[in-house]
Design a binder for these strands. Structure first.
Lengths: 348, 348
DNA sequence: CCTCCTCGTGGAATCGATTACACGGAGGAT
DNA sequence: ATCCTCCGTGTAATCGATTCCACGAGGAGG
């Protein structure tokens, strides 16, 4: 592959001049510029990004470590991240942690070894050593969706409190009183937060949330199935199961179906994270939708701000309730979220 | 960040010795080795992959250019590719082309600029200039799923002919006679092949496939909706719609539902590419399943073979029919594919 | 006419690794 | 005792870019 030296020879100038032309420096004569451009064209020359990175100490590359590529929520996030990064002149390297801390560490290490300019992370568990180290060492970093408390890194996430409250109101109005939740891993912030928000909302309606109606999942479909089976085995099974992510909701659907029960007649179902497929499931699933695309874009902007010396602040965007059929038909027949007041947070 | 020079100073040896220890060269005394390792530990040193790549002219990185990340088929492929690559000591950089030739070219260029060791491509259209150029220039390359005829590059794909024949047999047995297909872009091999296979299978049963029952889609949901609406507007709408990928099937489902029609009672539906969500849609969708994981792994092995100087052959794996409810209930009540003979290709 | 800038250009150092080559010392063979 | 090997180690070239510095030419100003 042709190098800058070949171009210099072909154009009859020095490598310095070639480099200046390529980087748009002002002090190059029109004649030299033309000859260099012609040589570049003739040789099909493309600058070696590896060499350039070594010299300039920047790769114009962002690392994105997500918890699970097979989760539509994260692929949508990844897509918007790549889009915004591209618009800003950066590439993105995605690392899939598969909800495994060791894999997350592997990817963080690899990414750091490649000297990416900044890191976007949705941490799988409380804190993998390499990541904390990188954060402390001052690697530009931003957390998306999930974060690690006590680490001084901007967080771009969405706040589901309002939407969860709307959901509980919706369920209450439909007559459901025994509510259960499939929680995410306690080590993740989203795992804890969603349970907390749910519990608080229940408290507002004077509804209890006993321990046997809090199932421990791991954000994967299989755990949703297992937990739901536990719920169904209870002496008094719940009226509703709320899954803290879309994959566990899928598992729950499986478990319910395996018993020959129907949603929502026998048991209702709701999920955190809205995805296209929920429109097409049987029945369509009521879910809490995050503004995923906005989240990804905001995260990239915050990270690039940090990289380029600007501040790069945390961002919190509201989630909203999307009512479908999986919790039962709205008595009024309308499908609007039943927020008592027109709170901006939950309904536009 | 600490460099090899710092480690050398700390350990009281030369950089050459440090490098030798790090690369497991035999001629290093145990004492020196111990001191180097201690220094590495003390400084938290990690080799700079950029510098190493510049010198050795290899990045131990594979590029993967896929047509659409939001398509579960491709995310599963990406996942298995990354897994196998990791096992072989390579990293993967994913480029999402979004079915757009210009984006595909952008990613190929970026990947090549980064001097990836090899390229895995599922081309969006007949041939983007940069890619063809790279193939001609001898960049190790392997096509996955789709390919470009006439380009001398190994292809790892799955053959759906047998499964499509099984599907048509299944439909015939259920009494369907007016079959329609939503095709993929004619510029892609999978787009053409699936139509051809379908037409051939229909011919075996003496069924016609008039032009107005071949709709032109682009592998995206929206096109599936549009084409299906066209079908429903026909004086004699088809009994069955076969979508050449899962996203277009989703669009078809939307269109059918928007008219207040039911699947499979009013019109049956089948899809190429089986994904988890098809189990949960209303109704569950009959689909042709590719061995996606095997495809990804085989592609990586073929590519790494090429990179490391071995041959790296093309691979074709059979797809198989997965019968669900979207084409109607099997008269016999069983859910087995109706292959007349126990062909290995379609039923295990 | 001399001096001083400015402009375009090239030489060479540099980034952080790998590796060919040289060299000194220890040990074995004669 | 001498010579030859081998082993461990260091010096320096190298990969392909960027960029500081110096230099010569030409124009402006005194």
């Amino acid at each position: 592959m042709a190098s800058i030296k070949d171009v210099a020879v072909e154009a009859g100038v020095s490598v310095a001049t070639v480099s200046r032309v390529l980087n748009g420096h002002p002090s190059v004569s029109p004649g030299a510029r033309a000859r260099v451009l012609a040589a570049v064209e003739a040789l099909g020359y493309r600058p070696n990004a590896v060499a350039r990175s070594l010299r300039t100490d920047q790769t114009r590359t962002l690392g994105l470590v997500i918890s699970d590529v097979m989760n539509p929520y994260f692929t949508e996030l990844a897509r918007s991240v790549e889009e915004e990064a591209r618009a800003l002149g950066y590439s993105v390297i995605i690392g899939n942690a598969d909800e495994r801390p060791d894999l997350q560490d592997h990817h963080v290490t690899t990414l750091l070894d490649r000297r990416i300019d900044g890191l976007l992370v949705s941490p799988t568990d409380g804190g993998s050593p390499r990541m904390l180290e990188a954060a402390r060492a001052g690697t530009p970093m931003v957390f998306v969706d999930r974060w690690i408390p006590g680490v001084d890194v901007p967080v771009v996430r969405s706040d589901g409190r309002g939407a969860v409250r709307d959901l509980v109101a919706h369920l209450y109005r439909l007559g459901h009183r025994r509510l259960a939740i499939i929680a995410g891993p306690a080590a993740t912030t989203t795992g804890r937060e969603r349970v907390d928000a749910f519990r608080e909302a229940l408290a507002e309606y004077g509804l209890p949330l006993p321990d046997d109606r809090i199932g421990q999942g791991d954000f994967q479909a299989e755990s949703g199935r297992r937990v739901t089976e536990g719920f169904l085995d209870l002496p008094e099974p719940p009226d509703v199961v709320f899954a803290a992510d879309n994959l566990m909701a899928l598992g729950a659907l499986d478990a319910v179906r395996a018993r020959g029960l129907r949603v929502p007649e026998d048991i209702a179902l709701a999920a955190f994270d809205d995805i296209r497929w929920f429109v097409h499931t049987d029945p369509p699933v009521t879910a809490i939708a995050q503004p995923t695309g906005d989240l990804g874009r905001a995260a990239v902007r915050a990270l690039v701000d940090r990289i380029e010396g600007r501040t790069g602040e945390s961002v919190t965007l509201p989630a909203r309730l999307v009512v479908r059929r999986s919790c039962g038909e709205s008595p009024s027949g309308t499908a609007h979220p039943p927020s008592p007041s027109p709170v901006r947070r939950s309904t536009p």
